[in-house]
Nucleic acid binder design. Structure first.
Lengths: 344, 344
DNA sequence: ATGAAAGCGCTAACAT
DNA sequence: ATGTTAGCGCTTTCAT
């Protein structure tokens, strides 16, 4: 095909045998020339690699995997690819994987626990391990999945499983403390999905800090964790008598801002608003959103890092103690001192 | 491991041989029980499937692929996973693939043409075909890649290659015609990346409609196709004497809006702004952005559909004539009649 | 340092 | 309708 020695592979690609023939060595030698600890004379390796280059040969990873039991692939299961929260996670994971020469399978579970389980099973044979982003499945299902495949969790912790999490509870503490410092004494929370691990973490942080600072923290909703949901909560927040709101995430906060504006409530004059995540949107809306920045890119990278660690060296970085990434409050324009009261 | 017959596979998973033994049949029969046109007696198939279920057996796709030459995987190469434009594309592609029981590899080329080529080569053996999203690579590189792998293009057309594109030129026509109907006579364009196919399409549409409607269309920039870039262009637009701006995409338009607001220019009172893409952000900012909605989700699905068509039936849906998806102007709050002039 | 040969888990002739 | 067998492209003993 390329004007060189005839190709054997029935799919038209050069195989290890073609290279061996072209380089005048055995297939074993070609194989060795490609493996790290392969014992080959330098001159031989060069000759092999040169022949391979000429033929456009690339080792078939599937065939290699069949025997080594390693595929060089990892899987990434995400609840919803349309959710901006996961965009940086995917990007980070992909980048880290590529750096280690791993390819990544991606799957969208559509927020469905059953689908997640199915996806993991479907991937299992084709990947060396999978990172599960904020999985919806039950603890039991999770443990069972962990027995089938090498997994690492992202954005959720579970007993005995390696995980990287983002310190939501502390983010909540930071947000509330700052609000208190600004003078707020009644701070509403617009929560996320009932069964969400990060929502429960945020509630935990909220309860702690509320007790410590002696502030009241009415919990609104629940509303859908989206832009619309935030808008719906606007009236309720005003009625609650709160002077500040913390929303489950930036999407909700942005919708909240929108609803507040529609109701003629000035931000931050009459109401301060804080989000979670720091998705790009947060800096693009007016007023720019104060929010708890979650290092999702780093989390994606870290999760793959932990997975690779388990895979390559079998070293389990203290699987019982999730690696928790610090978060930081980013103050922008949606927060300020309370109390101008209703506009005069 | 499961208390059943001893497992053979050296990686602890049940293999076809285990199932054959458990079901009291040969491996060939097990194989047949799993393939579409497999001729097996119903009762036998049931027995096999039951044994497989008991052992937790799932066929190893890599092994199967080794012999059939089909992997059941497709690849998706995206310039930048952080770019919201591609989020729905990925989601759509993933959904369509999953429906046909294909898994998807995803790769981020970081807008680098060389990286794209490398990624395609790296994937080639593990996938049956790949969808190239708005590839940056040269026409020549594209043609060469198409010889290595089965590809379909998304968001770009190239001679002889199957593609699904979005009708950018028509989107521009719609936007400008609407602006003209509103009374605008001088409409600025903030362009995208020089070498972008969609940008050149938009310019083409702009030139056409400008000639037809007799309006002037100063072209600004160039600026980076991001939020910041749009902000930078704000001053330039005002100076150009235009009463309306069309931006390369929503990100640029949003930044533009931001810059305009900072400069005290009222929108749409003193300046109308139109974006491209209709990413979620467009509806969340104030004023809500009028924009040309690109059906990116549908495009992702369609591209995978075309790929699957080529793969499964060898039917090439007129590869010389890209499937072009219609776009539609969505009017929101950032456009209106011109000419209140500078605020009094 | 290199080669021969035995598989990895599976499918596709070819038998029966 | 089912079983036997020869590989797919590769790595890994075991010889040499």
């Amino acid at each position: 095909v390329r004007g060189d020695a005839a190709t054997t592979g029935h799919h038209g690609q050069a195989t290890i045998r073609d290279v061996a023939r072209a380089a005048g060595v055995s297939v074993a030698t070609v194989s060795r020339a490609y493996t790290e600890g392969g014992v080959v004379r330098d001159s031989t390796r060069e000759r092999v690699l040169e022949a391979a280059r000429r033929l456009g040969y690339r080792p078939n990873r599937a065939a290699r995997g069949l025997i080594t039991g390693r595929t060089g692939n990892i899987g990434l299961v995400v609840p919803d690819l349309a959710n901006p929260y996961f965009h940086a996670v995917v990007k980070g994971a992909q980048a880290r994987a590529r750096r280690a020469d791993y390819a990544v399978f991606i799957a969208d579970s559509q927020e469905d626990a059953r689908e997640e389980t199915g996806l993991i099973a479907a991937m299992a044979k084709q990947v060396d391990g999978v990172v599960l982003c904020s999985p919806r499945m039950s603890e039991a299902a999770l443990q069972s999945a962990a027995r089938t495949a090498t997994v690492v969790l992202l954005g959720r912790a579970a007993r005995g499983l390696p995980a990287v999490t983002l310190d939501s509870a502390d983010g909540m503490r930071q947000a509330v403390r700052r609000l208190v410092a600004l003078g707020h004494r009644r701070i509403a929370y617009v929560p996320g999905p009932r069964r969400s691990w990060s929502d429960s973490e945020r509630r935990r942080g909220l309860a702690e800090v509320a007790a410590r600072c002696g502030v009241e923290t009415p919990i609104l909703g629940p509303v859908a964790p989206r832009f619309d949901g935030g808008g719906e909560a606007a009236g309720e927040v005003v009625a609650s008598g709160a002077t500040a709101t913390v929303a489950f995430n930036d999407l909700v906060a942005a919708g909240h801002l929108h609803g507040l504006a529609a109701a003629g409530v000035r931000v931050p004059g009459e109401m301060s608003v804080v989000g979670f995540d720091d998705i790009p949107l947060a800096a693009m809306i007016t007023p720019a959103l104060t929010t708890v920045a979650m290092p999702t890119l780093a989390a994606g990278e870290a999760a793959v890092g932990v997975l690779l660690g388990r895979l390559e060296e079998g070293r389990d970085l203290a699987p019982d103690h999730p690696q928790v990434l610090p978060v930081a409050l980013v103050e922008r324009e949606s927060t300020g001192p309370p109390g101008e009261g209703r506009r005069g």
